[in-house]
């Protein structure tokens, strides 16, 4: 206490100066509207920058939560988008409940390869999160693969960068059905087979999923045609395509659960018998 008083006495001039300075600033502020406006402007600037600083700090620490919220929101929107594209599944009668068998689930890629000819992806969601084998995996701008096997908390996905995987596709403009497979070198370059020669195709046509497999719903945009060749002997086009998404760079993915998968499989088995 003694030391505080000593310090106060020692710096009394500065303290008195500061007090009187504040009093005269208040006086100036009260007396002159011009100065009042100016001072308020500076005060606003200071408080704004302080608030902005604290806002950005707190925002930085909230980023993780915001990210996961956005991911969840994106999942819902993606589901709606897919739903809106598959008009054919809607009953014509509007009083009946609309049924859509595909449900999206979130996941994060934790391991991804693209250098081999047969690549696999590990996703951090497994059986406990409701992931089952044979679920389709898509990302924001295209398809990624199909779930091959699941453990309790993880699942392994056959990447689209795997030469064994053939995806049923459709051309958006001409509705021609074909098969998409990886060429094996560049992660964005793919080839399309089985498109019959009498269809009218152009460079730049959009490729979408065909909806013929039970893995992917109809209408997910995958990529674009970059060039094509007319194989008149075989009767099919050989087409090169480029994906919208680079499958080697993805992090957030959505797994598509088809609730009718068992039913379809059973039906197929019955038909084969």
């Amino acid at each position: 206490m003694q030391r505080i008083i000593n310090a106060l006495i020692q710096y009394r001039n500065a303290i008195i100066y500061l007090i009187l300075l504040i009093i005269s600033l208040l006086y100036l502020n009260r007396n002159s509207n011009f100065h009042k406006n100016k001072l308020e402007k500076y005060g606003l600037y200071f408080s704004q920058s302080i608030y902005y600083l604290s806002y950005s700090i707190s925002k930085y620490f909230d980023l993780k939560k915001i990210n996961s919220d956005l991911f969840e929101e994106n999942r819902k929107l993606k589901e709606f988008e897919l739903k809106s594209k598959s008009v054919s599944l809607y009953p014509r009668n509007y009083f009946k409940e609309k049924r859509y068998p595909f449900v999206l689930k979130k996941g994060n890629v934790i391991k991804n390869s693209f250098l081999k000819q047969r690549n696999f992806i590990i996703v951090d969601k497994g059986k406990s999160n409701g992931i089952n084998p044979e679920m389709g995996v898509i990302s924001e701008k295209g398809i990624i693969g199909i779930v091959k096997s699941v453990s309790e908390n993880y699942s392994s996905v056959i990447s689209i960068l795997n030469q064994d995987l053939k995806i049923n596709i459709r051309l958006k403009n001409s509705n021609a059905i074909g098969t998409l497979s990886w060429k094996g070198i560049n992660p964005k370059e793919f080839q399309i087979e089985d498109i019959v020669r009498n269809t009218d195709i152009q460079i730049g046509d959009t490729i979408i999923t065909g909806g013929m497999s039970s893995y992917f719903p109809f209408g997910i945009p995958i990529g674009k045609i970059t060039d094509f060749e007319d194989n008149s002997k075989v009767g099919y086009y050989s087409i090169n395509a480029k994906l919208f998404e680079d499958p080697s760079l993805i992090y957030h993915v959505y797994m598509i659960e088809n609730k009718d998968l068992d039913e379809i499989n059973r039906l197929q088995e019955n038909t084969l018998k």
């Binding site: 005269s24 006086y27 100065h35």
Partner: peptide
């Protein structure tokens, strides 16, 4: 310091200026 403040304040008060005399006189006094 106190008297320079009072001086500036009196000038401001009597000439009805905002407070610039007070501030500048006080600062010079300090």
């Amino acid at each position: 310091i106190l008297s320079s403040f009072i001086l500036g304040f009196l000038i401001d008060f009597l000439s009805q200026s905002g407070g610039a005399h007070t501030l500048s006189t006080l600062t010079i006094g300090f």
